[in-house]
């Protein structure tokens, strides 16, 4: 799938090369990032597709919201209403503060729609946009990754956003003093000897929540994307192998690709829902005192 016959004849990329190339981001440096953490680099592809998905999702809902009627709803409005009612219901059951829900419920809806659309980029053939991009730039080694949620920056960015909101609501609901008091007296109890363990525990809790929140989505989407690449490799095997082996590779690509794509629909929706639910749960926890 990845390469045309002509390219394959010119230089057959090894499976490792293919995958490594596909995991490279289009970033501001032009080549894959060398160090694990480098804040001078921005992944342009992740940023572009996440903003594009966010804009598309919100625009669709905004168009509906502009023409919304309290009379008989159209189909688009009914669809958005169902989505909104679902999110509003979850928000109501988790966050009991009406005031907080005014922001948190729309936030949850945004997260769900946005993450769903970003995950859905996985449904496009794994080589389609990269090849178009390579054609458009004229650089056949140009990097492009189209699934923003298969980039740790994308998911951690959102989960850190949720963490900041947790801090904000902790301070807002309990007051600065109340929150600090809680940081040192919960979960083990109010005793000077327990202040440090309490605080460490709280820090671990925040860290674990945030990292697992972002990592869960990233891991699912990254693994999904990787599997699509491996399946695509089978198709590539068809072009380089001849005879029965090649035919089997081709059949394997079709069968595995179909099943994984179908199964991935579930993962895409489920992970978007889970991300939204955890967002609500973590912010809800910030509202509760120990």
């Amino acid at each position: 799938m990845a390469t045309t016959g002509h390219e394959a004849a010119a230089h057959v990329p090894s499976a490792g090369d293919y995958i490594v190339h596909h995991l490279g981001h289009l970033n501001t440096t032009g080549h894959p990032q060398a160090s694990v953490v480098d804040f001078s680099v921005i992944n342009l592809d992740t940023l572009f597709f996440s903003v594009a998905m966010g804009v598309i999702g919100l625009l669709l809902m905004w168009v509906v919201a502009r023409r919304v009627t309290s009379g008989v709803p159209g189909r688009a409005q009914a669809a958005v209403e169902i989505l909104l009612e679902m999110v509003a219901g979850q928000a109501r059951s988790i966050i009991h503060s009406e005031e907080s829900r005014k922001f948190v419920a729309p936030l949850a809806l945004t997260v769900f729609v946005w993450v769903f659309l970003m995950n859905s980029m996985d449904f496009l053939p794994v080589d389609l946009l990269p090849m178009l991009w390579q054609g458009a730039t004229g650089n056949e080694h140009a990097y492009l990754r189209v699934v923003p949620t298969a980039d740790l920056n994308g998911t951690l960015g959102m989960s850190i956003g949720v963490l900041l909101l947790c801090f904000w609501y902790n301070i807002k609901i309990k007051g600065m003093g109340g929150w600090v008091h809680e940081l040192f007296t919960a979960p083990f109890g109010n005793h000077p000897a327990l202040y440090l363990p309490n605080f460490l525990m709280q820090m671990i809790e925040f860290l674990a929540k945030t990292v697992s929140h972002g990592m869960r989505l990233f891991g699912n989407m990254y693994a999904g994307e990787l599997l699509f690449m491996l399946i695509a490799l089978m198709g590539m095997g068809f072009s380089s192998m001849s005879g029965v082996g090649g035919s089997l590779m081709w059949a394997g690509h079709v069968v595995a690709g179909t099943f994984w794509a179908l199964f991935h629909i579930l993962i895409v929706v489920l992970q978007a829902f889970i991300f939204m639910m955890l967002t609500l749960v973590y912010i809800g926890q910030a509202h509760e005192g120990h």
Partner: peptide
């Protein structure tokens, strides 16, 4: 790899 995309995503 972690980079400044994270901050951009946070803002978005």
């Amino acid at each position: 790899y972690v980079n400044a995309t994270l901050v951009a995503q946070l803002v978005v």
